[in-house]
């Protein structure tokens, strides 16, 4: 019964794989819950600072900070947020596809694109096709703003010096556990948001002077948006991994069922053959 033994060992090995994927699924599920809480927690700050910036865009100051002034896009910058690890379904690839499409668009317009990346997956993917200006990897499940500041600063400095005229953030948006959508957000110049109607001709009292104050607020704004994007991407990663591992476990189950059937058939065939041999032998003797 050599065939039977082979099938048996195959079943064993698939079972072991299934155990691993099941464990990964459960780990991802619990990490996802925590990541979602962090997204929720960081959202109010990001929203409030966006609201303030929105008000600021409607004020009538004498001084306009360069981060708020639209200028012709001769070069653009992108911050691409990906995961550090794989085994999370098509999460990164879907994002990269969208980024590549975007890169082609700018290429058609003859606009060079500078990129910085967050996460090891984007770093290894984009290193092959472009120069990466800065990268930050190994942020772990609990990203800290301090780790991102350096990378963000590279882009902000470029913007200030006029090396880039637009800054985009590309990352995944968490819709729900089953759906994560690649998302592009314009960081700079700060897009105008005209939800709220404020009276015309007013301005803030600024303390300290506007240039200094706006600088610190706008930098904080960009940092908050990027941080929000990174935290959200972690939630996406965990959700995508959970779903991917769940379907891997289910597939493993199907394979085990098929193999079990195969094993039973072979065993049956072996028994039948043995029986017929015995019967034939007995017939020959008598």
């Amino acid at each position: 019964m050599a065939g039977g033994k082979e099938v048996k060992s195959k079943i064993k090995s698939v079972e072991n794989t299934q155990k691993i994927t099941k464990a990964m699924e459960m780990v991802a599920a619990s990490k996802m819950r925590k990541a979602q809480e962090r997204v929720e927690a960081s959202r109010p700050y990001a929203q409030k600072i966006r609201r303030t910036i929105g008000h600021l865009a409607q004020a009538n100051p004498d001084f306009k900070h360069p981060f708020m002034v639209e200028r012709e896009a001769k070069r653009v910058g992108m911050i691409i947020v990906s995961t550090d690890r794989g085994l999370c379904g098509g999460l990164n690839i879907n994002l990269f596809r969208k980024v590549l499409a975007e890169l082609r668009e700018w290429d058609k317009k003859n606009v060079p694109v500078e990129i910085v990346v967050v996460g090891r997956k984007a770093a290894s993917f984009f290193r092959r096709i472009k120069d990466i200006k800065a990268e930050v990897t190994d942020l772990g499940d609990r990203p800290h703003l301090e780790d991102l500041i350096g990378t963000i600063k590279v882009m902000l400095d470029d913007y200030r010096e006029g090396n880039i005229d637009r800054l985009f953030l590309m990352g995944n948006e968490f819709v729900n556990t089953m759906t994560q959508r690649p998302d592009i957000q314009q960081l700079l110049p700060v897009p105008e948001d005209e939800d709220e109607e404020l009276p015309d001709h007013w301005d803030y009292i600024y303390e300290p002077e506007p240039p200094e104050l706006l600088e610190s607020i706008l930098v904080r704004y960009v940092e908050a948006q990027v941080y929000q994007g990174v935290v959200e991407n972690v939630a996406c990663e965990m959700a995508a991994r959970m779903v991917a591992m769940k379907s891997a476990s289910d597939n493993a189950g199907d394979i085990i069922d098929d193999l079990q059937l195969e094993y039973n058939k072979q065993r049956q065939a072996a028994i039948t053959q043995e029986l017929s041999e015995i019967v034939a032998g007995a017939a020959a003797v008598s």
Partner: peptide
């Protein structure tokens, strides 16, 4: 506690932006 001294804000305060 604003950067240039404590501020008390009552309704209808003028728009203010500070650290």
């Amino acid at each position: 506690a604003a950067e240039e001294g404590d501020v008390g804000i009552a309704p209808r305060h003028a728009p203010l932006l500070t650290r």
